[in-house]
């Protein structure tokens, strides 16, 4: 997606986050001076070694954590707390274990702001729609502990989408899956995000991962972060055509991009395990 002069959907300006250890009072800088502009409909992947503060950035955009300094604006308005306009998909899905698939997906519609104006039948219809979309028809009455990892991931995705957020915040959503399921769900994620739809109908997505090939496959732009403290090291546009098929992984350009990102991370990754 080409950068235009439109106002950004999300704007992070000099965002830093410090944590203070409760006992010792020792301060750690998790995120330092991150500035980033994200356009509406963009798919952004954030990649970096563990401890680079990528989840912290996501939490701040979600409104679950406050920046120590700097500002985060959405559509020009500062973010002050969590809201249904910014849906989060957590790494381990955070499904409610006491609710079945249908009630998990309908949770926000039933108890939160997204369903305030909707009638019961509209809510049920919408839940049904997302159950279909993620291929969970027939499992509506199952509980999370009865589902496989891939199915839980689909429930979390459907729950996220059912609330109708315009920004999707995805924190390593495929991290817990085996390699094959992961490849399949990457394609599915792009389809659900709106890859085949016109760009203006797509949602804005921030996707966190430590899998380099995943970033190249999914992203419009890849944000590479470095650690101690967490900073943006580089932002790389991914100039691969959409919709992206499995075969794109075999193309030379795909390999070059992955190589380039790995080159930016390599030193720190080696240092982390040394």
């Amino acid at each position: 997606m080409a950068t235009t002069n439109r106002a950004p959907k999300l704007k992070l300006s000099n965002v830093s986050k410090e944590f203070t250890a409760p006992g010792t009072g020792q301060r750690t800088v998790a995120v330092a001076d991150v500035s980033l502009e994200i356009q509406s409909g963009e798919f952004i992947c954030v990649v970096g070694p563990s401890g680079c503060g990528k989840s912290t950035v996501l939490n701040m955009v979600a409104g679950l954590a406050e920046p120590s300094s700097g500002t985060i604006e959405k559509d020009g308005v500062p973010i002050t707390g969590p809201g249904a306009d910014r849906g989060v998909m957590f790494q381990d899905y955070a499904l409610f274990p006491w609710l079945n698939v249908r009630d998990n997906i309908g949770f926000g519609l039933r108890h939160g702001t997204p369903g305030k104006e909707l009638s019961r039948s509209t809510r049920e219809e919408r839940v049904g729609h997302y159950i279909e979309l993620v291929g969970l028809a027939g499992s509506e009455n199952k509980y999370p502990h009865q589902l496989s990892g891939g199915m839980r991931q689909r429930v979390a995705l459907a729950r996220l989408l059912a609330n109708g957020p315009d920004i999707l915040l995805l924190d390593e959503p495929l991290g817990a899956l085996d390699a094959q399921t992961r490849l399949i769900l990457q394609v599915e994620l792009l389809r659900i995000w709106g890859e085949t739809a016109p760009a203006e109908q797509r949602k804005t997505a921030i996707f966190i991962t430590h899998d380099i090939e995943e970033t190249v496959f999914l992203a419009d732009r890849v944000v590479v972060m470095s650690t101690h403290p967490g900073r943006v090291k580089a932002v790389l546009p991914v100039d691969l055509p959409r919709p992206r098929e499995e075969t794109i992984r075999a193309e030379p350009r795909f390999g070059h991009l992955a190589e380039e990102i790995w080159g930016l991370i390599r030193d720190e990754a080696y240092r982390a395990i040394a």
Binding site: A62, G63, L64, P82, G87, G112, R159
Partner: peptide, 14 residues
């Protein structure tokens, strides 16, 4: 689990 609370809050639950 704090993540369950966080999940609910990001769904606009009071």
């Amino acid at each position: 689990d704090q993540r369950l609370i966080a999940a609910a809050r990001t769904m606009g639950v009071g």
